[in-house]
């Protein structure tokens, strides 16, 4: 079904004011700092090659100034592997048993007892109890 985007009506003015204040403060700081003239890159500088050298800690080879980022590169690789494993673990439907994976993937399912009784009384808990 194709539908027009509709704005959410009940805007929160306190939060809007907070975000606006942050914006005004940031702009005031930025516009009074004075950064001078932009240096820019040379028109024929090989920027992609520079990035590649930086990722491999070969920044001495680069024509454009850059630092080495090999350690960060490897760390981000491990973080991406961890995120992939975490996403697969969370998405797998393992909700039986007592292991740590179950504790992660059942997502705070209501337990028996006081809490679920309270939720049943308030009436917003139909089929999540199991």
């Amino acid at each position: 079904m194709v539908s027009r985007p509709e704005l959410k009506e009940d805007a929160n003015y306190v939060n809007g004011l907070a975000a606006s204040v942050l914006f005004v403060v940031l702009v005031a700081v930025f516009l009074t700092a004075g950064f001078g003239e932009a240096a820019g890159f040379a028109a024929d500088a090989s920027l992609v090659a520079g990035i590649g050298y930086a990722l491999m800690d070969l920044h001495a080879e680069s024509a454009v100034g850059v630092e080495g980022f090999l350690a960060t590169f490897e760390t981000v690789g491990f973080v991406l592997v961890a995120a992939t494993v975490a996403a697969v673990t969370l998405a797998s439907r393992e909700t039986e048993g007592d292991g740590p994976v179950t504790a992660l993937t059942d997502g705070g399912r209501p337990v028996d007892g006081e809490a679920s009784e309270r939720r049943a009384e308030s009436g917003d808990d139909e089929e999540v109890e199991s």
């Binding site: 950064f35 932009a38 240096a39 820019g40 890159f41 920027l47 520079g50 990035i51 930086a54 990722l55 680069s62 454009v64 100034g65 850059v66 630092e67 980022f69 960060t72 590169f73 981000v76 973080v79 991406l80």
Partner: peptide
Amino acid sequence: AQWGNLTGQTFSLFVMA
């Protein structure tokens, strides 16, 4: 681009990852 240094561009790639 302001300082003519590639460090910012390189780090933006890490932010994307």
